[in-house]
Design a protein around this nucleic acid. Structure first.
Length: 457
DNA sequence: GTAGGGTTAG
């Protein structure tokens, strides 16, 4: 006997397959259901739109929208929210705004979820004022903000350098009855750590521990990362074991954090062990996991394995990102293969990444250290964008070569552009000028350093 | 259907 499948049951099946990324099986369920006389509804299509946006690409999601239209089913706010989220996650911001216009033109009013995503987009575009305007003019008057609205706000403020504002907002909301979630605490702890306010971060962590919430893997990973970044390696490892003792499961994030720290401190065997455990546990390696592994093999000079990994990344359907290429360039430089690194840097230029500043910085520093300081200076001259790391590294290396006059010139350009050079490096230049008898040059530099300091404060 | 943690350079 053939039974008609209820729409609800079909949707549950479709959702289950979508959740585990088995889109073909989800589509097969729909085909079978149609054959048995059950037609997909807006929920079915929305499930597919979300899954295709998430696991395939935005166009795949959009093609489901066309299928909906052909089936005479009207998209709703959920359909558009999924598409907007898909565009936002891929940083296709103009597509987000287009989709927003499209839904409004179709008479589908955006809801608080739509505006939350819009706020998130503005924050990612480094336009915090626009994000605040969305909250003030769109969400507050007509809709009520939800916990995600505030979490998006906290996160956006922190990521845009307004950690104090985020903390202030948190305090005032809390006084007015706002109940923070675990994610709220995690956002603030990370933001405070990132801006160097470790004491404030610890206070928020204490608040979290005193609330009825339990820290999770994300909280631990954040704390661990900042231990490593602050050079407190053993402390970070302690956090890792504390996490284990408390029965938390490690995910790709925590393994990546700790294995990268192992690799940096030369404990490569333990770093590799993390990967064995990850694979044993069935954790799928994403591009970040691969990047750390590439770095490990580079450090060890295991080039055949590096190139095998690059193939493996493609075979897994992943794409090498700016970190992969930069890691490779740095590794090649460190191994003394300057030509190979330069070739790869040029190749990276052709790939159209938003930024390859770090790769250039690696090149400049490693070229200097390998004794090719003039080659490094030539690359430095071709750079359109430089940051304080570019300058610090070049100035430092020029001093090592006792080329204090050139170091002073580079440092002056840097200060003129309002950028900082690591303070001990500045002192080495002044001292070097003195020891070389270039007294007036030293005085000039010192007064410029002082001036820059005043202008910054 | 929206929000958080992991990877590169001085």
């Amino acid at each position: 006997m053939v039974c008609k499948l209820s729409t609800r049951l079909m949707n549950i099946c479709v959702a289950s397959f979508c959740k585990v990324q088995q889109l073909e099986k989800a589509e097969a369920v729909i085909i079978d259901a149609i054959r048995l006389g059950t037609l997909p509804d807006v929920v079915t299509y929305n499930t597919l739109v979300a899954a295709y946006c998430r696991f395939v690409d935005l166009d795949a999601g959009y093609s489901i929208l066309n299928r909906m239209r052909e089936a005479d089913i009207y998209p709703n706010v959920i359909t558009y929210n999924s598409l907007i989220a898909g565009a936002s996650n891929r940083s296709l911001f103009s597509r987000c705004f287009d989709l927003f216009n499209e839904m409004t033109m179709l008479g589908i009013p955006p809801d608080v979820w739509s505006y939350n995503t819009l706020m998130h987009c503005f924050f990612k575009l480094k336009e915090p004022e626009e994000a605040k305007r969305v909250l003030r003019e769109k969400i507050m008057p007509k809709l009520s903000p939800c916990s995600t609205t505030f979490n998006t706000m906290f996160n956006g403020l922190c990521k845009n350098g307004y950690t104090s504002d985020a903390l202030k907002l948190f305090r005032s909301l809390k006084q007015n009855g706002f109940i923070p979630q675990l994610i709220t605490y995690n956002i603030l702890i990370d933001g405070l750590c990132k801006s160097g306010r470790l004491r404030a971060a610890r206070r928020v962590l204490k608040e979290l521990e005193e609330s009825n919430l339990e820290p999770n893997a994300s909280t631990y990973t954040t704390v661990m990362k900042y231990c490593f970044r602050a050079g407190k390696f053993e402390e970070g490892i302690e956090v890792f074991y504390e996490m284990k003792n408390k029965g938390y499961t490690y995910d790709a994030f925590s393994y990546c954090t700790v294995s990268s720290a192992f690799a940096k401190t030369g404990r490569l065997e333990e770093a590799h062990k993390c990967y064995e455990l990850m694979i044993e546990k069935g954790i799928e390696l994403d591009i970040v996991c691969y990047n750390i592994l590439v770095n490990m093999y580079c450090i060890q000079g295991r080039w055949e394995e590096v190139y095998n990994l690059l193939n493996e990344i493609e075979q897994a359907g992943l794409k090498c990102d700016e970190y992969t290429h930069t890691t490779l360039i740095d590794g090649l430089c460190r191994a003394g293969n300057v030509d190979g690194a330069l070739k790869h840097l040029r190749y990276m230029d052709t790939l159209g990444f938003d930024s390859n500043l770090v790769a250039y910085n690696c090149m400049v520093d490693r070229l200097c250290k390998a004794g090719y300081i003039n080659k490094a200076l030539r690359i430095f001259d071709t750079m359109d964008i430089r940051d304080s790391i570019t300058y610090t590294s070049l100035v430092h290396n020029l001093c090592e070569e006792r080329r204090f006059l050139k170091a002073s010139q580079v440092l002056l350009v840097c200060l003129k552009q309002g950028m900082k050079v690591f303070r001990p490096t500045q002192r080495v230049v002044v001292k070097g000028l003195h020891s070389s008898g270039l007294y007036s040059e030293a005085r000039k530099l010192q007064s410029k350093i002082r001036l820059a300091k005043i202008l910054r404060s």
